[in-house]
Design a protein around this nucleic acid. Structure first.
Lengths: 143, 143
DNA sequence: TACAAACCCTGTACCTACTACGGAGTCAAG
DNA sequence: CTTGACTCCGTAGTAGGTACAGGGTTTGTA
């Protein structure tokens, strides 16, 4: 299987596959006589694994750790739990912060709906007043 | 005001202030005889504005656009609306995707609570089976 | 058979928004 | 007079790719 075929099969971009190889996530495959990379079923499986972990937004370093577990079973399963727990905690923290951000932007957006021509833009006014340390609709008193 | 004082006053790191200057978000300030940057009230205000926009997670390029509006009032307010709407849309899209991710990770996490010693880790088994294209607890059938 | 399109190779630069140096000059306190 | 904190500039590094540039190879078609 050439790199383009592997790319087709997994939905991972050719450049990204080479990048994973360079990063050590994928083992360097054998080469054909012309220097082209030659992939087999094991590469396909490993790349699918990586892609699945990335879909869970795990950093590449953690994907690497999981791959080590796969390669060398019998490790402490608690480590895997912790890894997933850590990711879950990161995702939940980000979720909370994004929810706050969404409220802030919504409130700010409500300040202006583009049907004023004489008085200045409410959004801009809000943002500027925040620069003075005043309470703003998006962040309340102070920043 | 020296750069360290501006940093204290705004909570923006010294290096970041220099970075903003290099990026064109902050005008180059006057220099003291010794070459140190000399900031005034207008810089403080502008930096606070930038910081506020960044707290809304607006990309620097969009902060720049907003600054252009501030510098040159009378522009089309609809553009500002669109800018905020665009950000809101990005945030909401990310929110939706993070919520799905949270569900996936929770489900995956439930597969293993580290009190098994004989049978292999359920999380790892899930991730591996996903590499075979089988249905997985996190993403359902296929990826 | 000839030619062009599509593929593959390596290496490097670019992206965001910073952060972290390295090496040097400057300033205030003790 | 030294020590530490501050400032300067320029470069490199971060994550996770993406996008060339400049070359070789293979494949399809006329």
């Amino acid at each position: 299987m050439k790199i383009g075929e592997l790319s087709q099969a997994t939905g991972v971009d050719v450049e990204t596959i080479r990048y994973y190889e360079k990063s050590g996530l994928l083992p360097a495959p054998a080469r054909q006589a012309n220097g082209y990379r030659e992939y087999g079923a094991s590469h396909l499986e490993r790349l699918a694994f990586v892609r699945h972990c990335r879909a869970l937004d795990l950093p590449l370093a953690e994907v690497q750790r999981l791959l080590d577990f796969v390669d060398q079973p019998g490790g402490d399963c608690g480590d895997i739990d912790q890894l997933i727990d850590g990711q879950l905690a990161r995702v939940r923290a980000r979720l909370t912060s994004l929810q706050a951000l969404e409220r802030q932007l919504s409130t700010l957006r409500a300040r202006c709906d583009s049907r004023h021509e004489l008085h200045p833009c409410g959004i801009l006014a809000e943002l500027v007043s925040a620069a003075h340390g005043e309470a703003c609709v998006c962040h309340g008193a102070g920043l």
